[in-house]
Design a protein around this nucleic acid. Structure first.
Lengths: 162, 162
DNA sequence: CGATATTATATGAAAATTCATATTGTTTAC
DNA sequence: GTAAACAATATGAATTTTCATATAATATCG
């Protein structure tokens, strides 16, 4: 049982290249790897990843409209529409037309959905704490700060000059 | 032309919730938003995102095997197999059986692929520099450091104890 | 050596995703 | 008040993606 060099299947020269220090790659790789761990829990709870995201967002903003939910849950709108259909069929959410604007469809947690998300969020917090602990007191806060800062910066750019 | 509050379509109570400071969400949101900017360039170069990732990885590790490429390009193996087929049809890469192990298929940049990636990488670097500049001297390095650290930590966990 | 386990890649088929656009409701400007 | 612009959601159809598993090559173990 050799447990070293797990990723390097081959014997490449191994000079560090472009990708290994490219910001967008680091972000994607870190997000992927970190999320993969927790996504195991998500699946055990009977949810797919986008469903977990939708529920988590509804937990914070119940009654959000589809478009808004799509933005915060990082899902394209037409995809979200179909995901919501499935989730409604499964009884996790309910949709309701906004009386003040007939175009809007607001999504609400059902009791089942709320109870499910209520059970998963503590797992998420626990997983997050474990990860932050491994990064050390300052490592964790530094990471979060840096990410918040990046997000602010990117948000500014969007609203900025068009 | 109102250019504030772009994301908040509705008028929700807006008490900060779970998601807004959840590490995995920050990572996914940051990766998404940051990458979205550059992905516009990628598409203009006639590439889809996974193709760009594959080429960028090959740029660093030409001749990598499918499995390895799948890991570093953050794509599932069977998907990558099909992506590679398409890329070969388009003349961006070539596959070659590894003489030392008949199971392995090694992927090499074609001349066209190399010339394409050679033209895109500078754009990537430029975009990255612009973003880092906006984060400020220290902000950028702090972010990268934090991400590297996270990746190390996650990698350790994988190899660690099984 | 031969059986068995393991590794690398490919593939069928169901399901999900994308993209462009249709549909429906609302606001704006005359 | 109505036409034109805009906004929110839905949908058709092609393509992609996923998941489990098939296939093929190699390694291991008795």
């Amino acid at each position: 049982m050799k447990h070293f060099n797990t990723t390097d299947q081959t014997d490449q020269p191994r000079k560090t290249g472009f990708v290994d220090d490219y910001l967008l790659y680091l972000l994607a790789a870190a997000s992927d790897a970190a999320s993969a761990q927790f996504h195991a829990h998500v699946r055990k709870a009977g949810l797919r990843v986008p469903e977990w995201r939708v529920l988590a967002c509804l937990n914070d903003q119940d009654g959000a409209m589809i478009t808004h939910l799509a933005q915060i849950a990082l899902v394209e709108q037409s995809r979200l529409t179909r995901i919501i259909v499935q989730m409604e069929e499964r009884g996790l959410v309910q949709r309701a037309n906004d009386p003040s604007d007939g175009r809007r469809v607001r999504i609400y947690l059902s009791d089942a959905g709320r109870s499910l998300i209520t059970s998963v969020i503590p797992e998420a917090r626990a997983h997050e704490q474990a990860l932050l602990a491994q990064l050390g007191e300052d490592g964790g806060t530094a990471l979060k700060q840096a990410l918040h800062r990046l997000l602010e910066t990117l948000a500014q750019q969007k609203g900025g000059d068009n």
